Amino acid sequence: MRFPWGPGDVADLPTVGAGVDTLSDLSRSAEPPGVRLRTARAQARAFRAEFALTGTPDTVVTCDLVTLPYPTRFGLFRASRAIAPFLSITNRMLVIRWRDSDGRPRVLLFEPSDVELGRYTPYFDNLARKTPGVLERRMVREHGTVLGHLARLGIRPDDVDYLMFDHLHTQDLRRWLGTTAHQDDLDARPRAAFPRAKVVVQRDELAGMAELHPLQRPWYQPDTYRDVPPEAFLPIDGSIVLGPGVAVVKTPGHVFGNQSLVVNTSTGIWVSSENVIAAEALTPEHSRLPGIAKWARGWQQEVVLNANTIETTADQYNSAVLEKTLADRSQADPRFLQFFPSSELTGAWTNPGTTPTFSHGHITHGVQPV
């Protein structure tokens, strides 16, 4: 397999943003996991205080992309007693706009998944092959496309500065970034849909993708990166503030280079990632999902992880607690936090016992573009 860089080459790529001294990469600490957990809470509290002073972006808008099936045993790791083997999750894109200190407008797309090409991720491709077409059509619902949503919001593709994902599972970026060679499966050499955009990604994840571990292989499409120009990526090490009220926080565990979006809005601080798939997974004591509250109480677990890959489970747990500490309480229901899963648990009649107790559904901040 060819890849545009090896682990050592990633260090030569440019970076972006202002580093956050308050948050360290605890996955690299020599301390025991329990000590790292205590440190994560303390660091999150300190960062909350300073991040709130950075301001707010101009607008935050949520755009639904696709609802699809996902194994219950992955999404509600060990805790669920639902009879349904699958639950449904809705993938959503967040569009964030702000102005830099010099007045320059910026646009960030968080989770702008190419849904059509993402289906060829080995796990989902294998699942689709085993699922009758009539059943798949009932379980998979497309709501809109990345480019369609941007057109509706009045944003041109060449207005977009940054693309960001919490991690690169399922992502095929060839149509977004273009390629340097003809792609046989696409019968074309794609031109970049976002000609100015750079992908903000943890350096750890790019390095890891150059030589995947067997536990990682079902969830990545590394071959699709072989002809993507390396200069389209902006690797970062750890956490950064990208703009007023916009931060990228490293939250390793789900994958080694996992990262979360943190935004400050008119309702307070929101956090988004796929470390958990429901807001109630961060306050499971308030969940009415079968088994969740009892499991959390019995095992003294304060979060319920999303665990399709368990690269470093203790680190993922600690990252989820860090996210939990950063997020403000929901104004709609203060039992739950302003944590917005990048893939949010969605009720469906086909999946009994998996309808969430509480769902955000969307985030809206500022005046939406016409």
Rank of each mutant, 00 (worst) to 15 (best):
T325F: 13
G366W: 13
P352C: 15
L337I: 06
P356V: 15
R141A: 14
L23A: 05
Q43P: 01
P132T: 15
S260Q: 03
Y220W: 11
R335Y: 12
G8E: 12
E280D: 09
P230M: 12
Q43H: 14
G298K: 00
D102V: 04
D114C: 03
R191F: 07
L212P: 02
L53N: 04
G75P: 00
T265N: 06
D227E: 07
F233V: 00
S319P: 06
L242Y: 09
H167F: 08
T62L: 05
F340K: 06
G19C: 08
L177D: 00
G208N: 14
R196N: 15
E344I: 08
T62M: 01
Y120W: 06
R297I: 02
R297G: 13
L345N: 08
N306S: 15
D187R: 05
V321H: 09
W219C: 07
R78M: 13
F340N: 03
V107L: 05
V66H: 07
A320K: 10
R81I: 01
L108M: 11
E50D: 11
A197D: 09
R335C: 09
N91K: 03
G361R: 07
R329N: 01
V115N: 03
G178H: 08
P369W: 15
A320C: 15
D25W: 10
T121S: 11
K250T: 12
E111C: 10
L337V: 01
W349Q: 01
A128I: 02
E285H: 14
R191C: 09
N306H: 15
P356H: 07
A247H: 02
Q171K: 03
D158N: 10
L76W: 04
A314N: 03
Q259F: 05
V160W: 04
I89H: 00
I310S: 11
S342L: 10
R73F: 14
D159Y: 11
T59A: 05
V201D: 02
F3E: 01
D100A: 14
L215C: 05
E31Q: 14
P352D: 11
L13M: 12
E280M: 10
I363N: 08
V262W: 10
Q183W: 02
D64K: 07
S24P: 00
I89M: 08
V246L: 13
A188S: 14
V16G: 06
S239A: 06
F86K: 01
D159V: 03
A52F: 00
D184K: 13
I89L: 12
V35M: 13
Q183L: 09
S260F: 13
D166M: 07
A279K: 02
